[in-house]
Amino acid sequence: MEKFGFSLTKARVIDYDANDRSIVSYILEREPSLNLCIECGCCSAACTTGNFTGFSLREIHILLKRGENDLVRQKIRKCMLCGKCILVCPRGVNTRNVVFLAKQAFTKNEGYEF
C-alpha cells in the first residue's frame, strides 16, 4: 500500500468449493426442515431484531447453506429467540431451532462461546 498507493481488493465471490459446510450439515442432521426454506422472507419480515438491525433469518439460512460461516457466527448473536418466525413460516421450517443448532455447532466444532 505504502509503495503503490493502492492495494488488492478481496473478491466478493462466494467460493462454494473453498467454504466449509460442517455447520449446516450439523444443523440439517438435527433439523431437516431447514431444507424446506423457499426464501420467501416471511421470517425476516416478522422478526423483532430484523426491524432494527441488519439481521435477516432468511439470509442466515442461505449463508449457512453456502458455508459463509464467519458471517453467520457474527450475525446470529442478534437473534432474541422470540419464535415469531416459526409462527409465520409457510413451509414449516423450525427457524428458531436452526439458530439454536447453529450456535451449538459453532461451540462444539470451534469452541466458540456465545
Binding site: 466478493r12 465471490v13 462466494i14 467460493d15 462454494y16 468449493d17 426464501e39 432468511r58 439470509e59 442461505i62 449463508l63 453456502r66 459463509e68
Partner: peptide, 12 residues
C-alpha cells in the same frame, strides 16, 4: 449470482 445473498457465487 446468488441473488438472495446479493453476491456472486462460483461453484464446481
Amino acid at each position: 449470482e446468488d441473488t438472495l445473498v446479493g453476491r456472486p457465487l462460483k461453484m464446481e
